[in-house]
């Protein structure tokens, strides 16, 4: 079987709104990807540990609680510290425009806001993963 795109979907923050993240999980699975869902209320620490152990290509983060300006930077910083800085981080949720700009500057590759289609998300993941060159020596 050919190489699979691996995606970690995470739900940090205290809210329990997992409708969106579950729809995205099902859509990415149906697009042939391997999707690891971490469950509700994960700390940045737990999310980053999972992302590294699972060696995912992309980390998708769903935040609807309004705490995005705290949580996204925490996840990105921790990923970098732990040697997972090459993993792409994307997100979804209720995020005002000016925050989007700030978060993209902080290292979030892409943010999807309410109404985004799963087709767009799948498309973005495929293209972003393909564009990311991995230069590594095995031995």
């Amino acid at each position: 079987m050919s190489e699979k795109i691996r995606v970690l979907l995470a739900k940090p923050g205290l809210d329990g709104h997992d409708r969106g993240v579950k729809v995205v999980a099902a859509a990415l699975r149906d697009a042939g990807m391997e999707v690891i869902y971490t469950g509700l209320r994960q700390t940045p620490e737990q999310i980053v540990t999972a992302a590294i152990q699972e060696d995912v290509d992309v980390v998708g983060v769903s935040i609807l609680s309004g705490a995005h300006m705290t949580l996204f930077p925490a996840i990105i910083d921790l990923l970098r510290q732990r040697g997972g800085g090459d993993k792409l981080v994307f997100g979804g949720g209720i995020i005002p425009d000016e925050d989007i700009a700030a978060l993209e500057k902080a290292g979030v590759s892409k943010l999807f806001t309410p109404g985004a289609s799963t087709v767009d998300i799948i498309d973005w993941v495929r293209k972003a993963v393909a564009a990311r060159k991995k230069d590594e020596k095995l031995l």
């Binding site: 699979k4 990415l28 699975r29 042939g32 990807m33 391997e34 999707v35 869902y37 699972e54």
Partner: peptide, 11 residues
């Protein structure tokens, strides 16, 4: 069919 998977055990 698609080769995709939801890996939920970690949860």
């Amino acid at each position: 069919f698609t080769g995709g998977a939801l890996l939920g055990d970690r949860l």
